[in-house]
Amino acid sequence: MALAAASGRRAPPRGAVVPLATIALLEVAAFLFLGREDYTFAAPHDIVLALGRALADGSLPAATAQTLSCVLAGLAVGFALGVMAGVALGLTPLLDRLTMVSVELLRPVPPAALIPLMLLIAGFGFQMETTIVAFTTLWPTLVLSRAAIRAVEPGLIEVARALEMGTLRRALAIVVPSALLRLFVAFRLTAGIALTVAVVVEVVANPRGLGYGMIVAAQTLHPETALAYLVWIGLLGWGLNALLSRIEARFLDRFR
């Protein structure tokens, strides 16, 4: 582990070759083919400048805060409910059988299909977006945490039984630590989903946040700003996943 991490840091970042080459190619292509007044595309350096402007004038940080607040709130609610439901279903096969059909019917509902409904219920704003994020993250969390509970080694449950451990002690000492890594991976995956869904809701309907900023830029014929938002969203998603992966590697290795 330590060795791999160390060499990973020191080795030339091979993963950066393709993106850098692409950027260089785009720069050349933009120089050769893009007129001064183009409303569909922008050269990489224009995108970087637009990104700098949006950061400097505070519009991008404000939009980021709006989007991330919905992502985090929705994720918190969706993940918490998903884990509770997943644990309950993982522990009680009867409950699982009773709710199976409902879960399988609700799970594939596309998040975007909820937008009209949530607009009717909550109108524009934080609440409708957060609710959709929560709904979307609930299902994968439920499925993954149910699997995490089922994957707890039956041998360890027997050890707990032989030691006459009560339900709470058993849950804290055995079930939760057994499932911890899988639950964290579930969180990392659903965090990515949450960001995607929040931006989709903003692009389609909700007049706030990064997705809305992108749409406004496109509609006012500022492709460089729209693309700057896109790059920024990509960076956010990448950063979020990188942060969670580091936490996973740093603290959860022994739960593997």
Partner: peptide
């Protein structure tokens, strides 16, 4: 029902120890 008066050394030790706990932690259980 199981009783702590009776201790079981399970056949497969790899499935009877908590992999995330140290030796001391496993005894602490």
């Amino acid at each position: 029902a199981p009783s702590r008066k009776v201790a079981v050394v399970f056949q497969d030790y790899s499935k009877a120890l908590l992999p995330w706990r140290t030796a001391a932690g496993n005894i602490a259980l």
